[in-house]
Amino acid sequence: MIDRLTCLLCPLGCELEVETAGGRLEVRGHQCDKGLDFASEEVLRPKRNLAASIPVAGTDGRTTAVRLSGRVPREMIFPVLAEIAKLRPAIPVRRGDVLIRDVLGTGVDVIATRTVV
């Protein structure tokens, strides 16, 4: 399978072609070693941050927002979202509050990104 992607690490924006065949990975189009690492991570074990908004208890429908303190493997997006959906933090919520520590053992936290007081 051939995957085409643009390296996002610097403004050069190398257009990479990553071929995966028989467990081997071949990267073409990169102009530095960082591009090689970028391509293999993006194709083999892509990581993502994610964000959602959640209602704050004790308000008339105001929301806070959350994101992760770091990226998680892409396949963890929906399991983590399911954990976030259970959250009903009470007012006051402050930017940076940890709402779930080490969510699902991923090593990253779910943190509030909007202060609601």
Binding site: A65, R67, R95, R114
Partner: peptide, 10 residues
């Protein structure tokens, strides 16, 4: 660092 819009605004 990579933060969200509300954090940047605050």
């Amino acid at each position: 660092e990579s933060i969200s819009g509300p954090e940047y605004a605050e």
